[in-house]
Design a protein around this nucleic acid. Sequence first.
DNA 1: ACGATTTAGTTAAGCGCTTTCTTAATTTGC
DNA 2: GCAAATTAAGAAAGCGCTTAACTAAATCGT
Lengths: 334, 334
Amino acid sequence: MKITIYDVAEKAGVSIATVSKVINNTGNMRDTTRQKVMKVMEELNYFPSVMASALTGKKTQTLGLLVPDISNPFFSEMARTIEDRAHERGLSVIMCSTDEDEEKEKKYLELLRRKQVDGFIIASSFHEKKLLEDIKSAGIPLVMLTQDAGSLGVTSVSVDDFTGGYEATSHLLSLGHQNIVIITEQRLSSKMRLYGFREAYETYGYNYDESMVYQTVASIENGKTCLEEILKRSDQPTAVFACNDLIAIGVIQGAREQGIRIPQDLSIVGFDNTILATTTVPSLTTVAQPVNEMGKKVVDVIVSNINKEEENAERILFKPKLIVRDTSARLTSK
Amino acid sequence: MKITIYDVAEKAGVSIATVSKVINNTGNMRDTTRQKVMKVMEELNYFPSVMASALTGKKTQTLGLLVPDISNPFFSEMARTIEDRAHERGLSVIMCSTDEDEEKEKKYLELLRRKQVDGFIIASSFHEKKLLEDIKSAGIPLVMLTQDAGSLGVTSVSVDDFTGGYEATSHLLSLGHQNIVIITEQRLSSKMRLYGFREAYETYGYNYDESMVYQTVASIENGKTCLEEILKRSDQPTAVFACNDLIAIGVIQGAREQGIRIPQDLSIVGFDNTILATTTVPSLTTVAQPVNEMGKKVVDVIVSNINKEEENAERILFKPKLIVRDTSARLTSK
DNA sequence: ACGATTTAGTTAAGCGCTTTCTTAATTTGC
DNA sequence: GCAAATTAAGAAAGCGCTTAACTAAATCGT
């Protein structure tokens, strides 16, 4: 049925040990022997079983990637760069969407451990820190993506969210907006953006207060709902900083439905610079994360962890970049 | 180091066979014994190795999913429903983006076979039919998604592309458009949409000819480029049917840059009804595929193939649904 | 109460590979 | 030309699990 190393060995007239050596390109052997074995492998269309070799201490050549939701363009774009880089390095990746749900986080982590993935890339925020600690103490490489690892001594790759939040807000402030509202998510990265927001706000000498902060879960629908809430305020903000593009788009759509003109009546800044930012109209002013670089970096880090080349936990911060498009404009005095 | 079945057996004072039986819930045994073993597994935080059990004839509980590009919203949305359904059925999925590139198709297929995935879901079109035949003759379950399997006797799950193309075109024709242009991809599904286009065209008594057909690769950029080509025509079409949303968006953007008003000067219909169709402005008239149903179905089919519940190759066609939004309008006589 | 059944749990082979020892075959030095 | 050093190839154990075949213990019928 399935071709095994035994079939190859037999047909080539050598032992399975020899075949194994040519597969792994190890040990000494006559070149003619190597050629002969390779030829037979070719003829038999033989592929060594990753299962079997993983069982004998080798790696599974598989990475586990946990994201909140792969259908969110930010994460699917990120997943794509991760996938490509991983393949370059000889790894495949199993993706899991957690919806930031505690049950799923746990379930998928367990599942992936049973599958003996060589390492984890975690872009989903984590409720149960202990699960991550378990992984770490089990010696399985682990890198946080898009968020800091907190006290856990683990490398993280993310954008400088604080600065991103700061710049987005400064941009709005410099356009004359004084009454700005922010819509965050509960993830840590969002919190950092909020701190940046606050910092900018106060730097400009304005008073920051809690009532300017709205929290929701990333989706267009929720962005709309949030805007409705915001419109109930007695003081009407002239700008909103949404902590990701999806929410920003929701705000844009909600505004349109309400007959609020963008950017004349309301300026909006998003975060992530996903494909949506360019396809929406007016096109969205947003903070770009260098998705490609981040994706590459995160797999490089995990690969070197796997190979034990290094192990020093570090925070790798990429520079965000404000991309000014058409949803933000100078406040015109009424 | 890693906890194995031996550790559990020893601590529970039974043989590994007994432990194996409680893991798999097979064989007879005293309830107290089962409890005892389970307790120990719990205490030791033991997870059976999928590797090892796969090696002994069991499944790997992993599916291979090949898509053209996971960062394309259509495929990421599809991937999400597949992932969810797969997890419900106890499977995880390894995703690979082929870019419809022959080399990658081959490489990933090979890779996934080495990893002994239990089955393949193939949403990427395939240049080298032989690769698929190999899989089939190796007895590995295989389902085509989003496209027909052609002569290969393999189940396929897709939308009725012909009808979708027909309806999109009829819609345009019924709005009075007579000079319509179509932008296709090279994939089979696109060809079927083209046939539907042609059928509708001729049903309305107009002459179809090859020059109305443009072909490209799915991306916004290419959609734009295509529009440029189209604008060079001596006869200006009043409508374009793009075989997927990405291209349609490109056309919209290109049109805007050229100062062409949509839908007054040019009507556009897309295909797929991705998130982009709702976020673009004007919102895109497009043909929706029931992504959720399709994703579920494709997993169910492959699971039943894996379990050998059935094996009859069939073509499963879902009904497309035209969603009329704001990029298509009645042709106003000039 | 005793053999016949049924039930509970064990032994051991085997899945497809890697790897450490060994041994056999070559090559080298003088 | 022969022992010493080097190189090529093989034997066998082991990775963590499943399962068929088997044995021991419990249950049953009469």
